[in-house]
Write a protein that binds this DNA or RNA. Structure first.
Length: 482
RNA sequence: GGCCCCUUCGUCUAGUGGUUAGGACUCAGGACUUUCAUUCCUGCAACAGGGGUUCGAGCCCCCUAGGGGUCACCA
């Protein structure tokens, strides 16, 4: 009988969901879905100072926004709960007592001063790894009583085995951590709260994790955790340590590198599917060589054997390109829905739905982020149109422009309605009448109507603006000229 | 500093002993077009360095250099 695949994402609710954590979450999720296993969400809220329910809610929101779901967790329950570490304190205590009882762990009464001294001594000797000298490993009952009488509060340390710790990592391969590179580390603080490397193992063990998939910044924690598994008499799960995501200066991605929270990217108008697609491609590639990959394909194809061992720089430019291709693939109703909040936030007076869709479709090919719709569509909602750049002014001031505008106005009067086709026809007539062609013909009209030198296809713009508005704008551009 | 991990175009990557070292993003040029964009085409650009092993190394081994991570009563 093969073991059920169970993986977990275990964030600490101390702020916004970070891109790096989001990637870890997604990889766990893809793996769970690929293998028909379960994804467990566990909240590591033991840092009382920094943890908050708000952050926890934010994490749920962001994970869901990315399109993820999970099978067990604080919000959905499950038979291996509770799923918040603060609700599991009795469980940790039980195992603390167990390790204390069977001699795998012991009380250490060292004071901060004593510890510092040890640390400095070790540092002077050029080795800061196993700096703790294990001096309280074998305290007599009498010694313990004396320390207690002094009012010292002990921590609990694990007896770290004096042997090489080896394991096979799914992405990194065979790994060896030599004996002596880690000392007896604290598993329970003097205030009685357990530390990360302890609770993590208890939870992963009790929650029956088959694989631990996480960032490779946890690589050096792994031997410690394996030591805990051994002390507990448990079999460790399989480990897959994924390379980190780096900023453009090749250091670990952090706030310094700009937007690093999922929420930040969401607010800028990145599509969740683009973000998921992009993140999956950091340190991984599809065997097909394709890069635009649906979630379905990612679930199908994602495989840790194709994860490279080296970290990847988070390249926003490529993300933007990819987001653009996803935006272009949207149907117009969907895109309009997505742009709506941005246009509203800009304070634009929005027309009826059908027209709005037409407006949005003006810039669909131009958007890299939904947020860009605000700027790209500004001319549609602007109260007044003014040549926005020196070049635009130049176009308006061109000698031939007068002729073009007058001719245009005459032609416009002849038609009932100024739509896409009529406009094209009129421009042709204007060209014939004035002898002006190409750029000199179209640019002034564009500037008159939009103030810009670049923009969407003019006939489409005119189609939306209509006869009245176009007439007005051309006239006012004419005044400008005089 | 100790320990661990990593090293192909600027960036993301393909590559598992014999390739003109391929693709993508960016950038440049061109085609299309009334502009921008889209689309298509072309181009620039890489095996960190040094030793081995081998008839032959981006691929295997060693060393050096560089980068990252971690060394907490944070997670």
């Amino acid at each position: 009988m093969t073991q059920e695949i169970r993986v977990r994402f275990a964030p600490s609710p101390t702020g916004k969901l970070h891109i790096g954590n989001a990637r870890t979450a997604i990889l766990n999720w893809l793996f769970a879905r690929h293998s028909g296993g379960k994804l467990i969400l566990r909240i590591e809220d033991t840092d009382l100072e920094r943890s908050s329910r708000e952050s926890e809610e934010g994490i749920y929101r962001d994970l869901k926004w990315l399109g993820m779901n999970w099978d067990e967790g604080p919000d959905v329950g499950g038979k291996f709960g509770p799923y918040r570490q603060m609700d599991r304190t009795q469980i940790y205590q039980k195992y603390e007592n167990k390790l204390l009882a069977n001699g795998q762990a012991y009380h250490c009464f060292c004071t901060p001063d004593e510890l510092n001294e040890m640390r400095e001594k070790a540092l002077a000797a050029g080795n800061t790894d196993a700096w703790y000298d294990c001096r309280h490993r074998n305290l007599t009952e009498k010694e313990k009583q004396d320390f207690l009488a002094e009012g010292r509060k002990p921590v609990v340390r694990l007896k770290y085995p004096d042997e090489d710790i080896m394991f096979t990592d799914i992405v990194k391969g065979e790994l060896t951590f030599p004996a002596g590179s880690t000392g007896d580390f604290v598993i329970v603080r003097s205030d009685g709260t357990p530390t990360y490397n302890f609770v993590c193992v208890i939870d992963d063990g009790l929650m029956k994790m088959s694989h631990v998939i996480r960032g490779d910044d946890h690589l050096s924690n792994t031997p410690k955790q394996i030591a805990v598994y051994k002390a507990l008499g448990w079999t460790p799960p399989k480990f897959a340590h994924i390379p980190m995501i780096l900023g453009d200066d090749r250091t670990r991605l952090s706030k310094r590198h700009g937007a690093t929270s999922v929420k930040g990217y969401a607010d800028d108008g990145f599509l969740p599917r683009a973000l998921v697609n992009f993140m999956s491609l950091l340190s991984w590639s599809s065997p097909s060589g394709d890069e635009i990959l649906s979630v379905e394909r990612l679930i199908e194809e994602y495989d840790f054997s194709r994860v490279s061992k080296s970290p990847a720089v988070f390249n926003v430019e490529k993300l933007e390109w990819m987001n653009g291709t996803y935006i272009r693939a949207l149907d117009i109703a969907e895109l309009t829905d997505l742009c709506l909040p941005y246009l509203q936030s800009a304070g634009y007076r929005l027309p009826e739905r059908a027209v709005l869709e037409q407006i949005v479709s003006l810039v669909q090919e131009n958007l890299e982020r939904l947020k860009d719709s605000i700027e790209k569509l500004e001319f549609v909602f602007a109260e007044k149109v003014r040549p926005a750049t020196p070049e635009a002014v130049q176009m308006i001031e061109k000698e031939s422009t007068q002729k073009v505008f007058w001719s245009f106005l005459r032609q416009v009067e002849k038609v009932e309605k100024l739509d896409f086709a009529q406009f094209r026809k009129i421009m042709k007539t204007v060209s014939v009448e004035t002898g002006v062609m190409g750029k000199d013909l179209w640019m002034p009209v564009r500037v008159a109507l939009t103030g810009q030198i670049h923009g969407p296809e003019l006939p489409k713009v005119v189609d939306i603006f209509g006869k009245k508005r176009c007439k007005k704008l051309i006239k006012s551009a004419l005044n400008l000229n005089n």
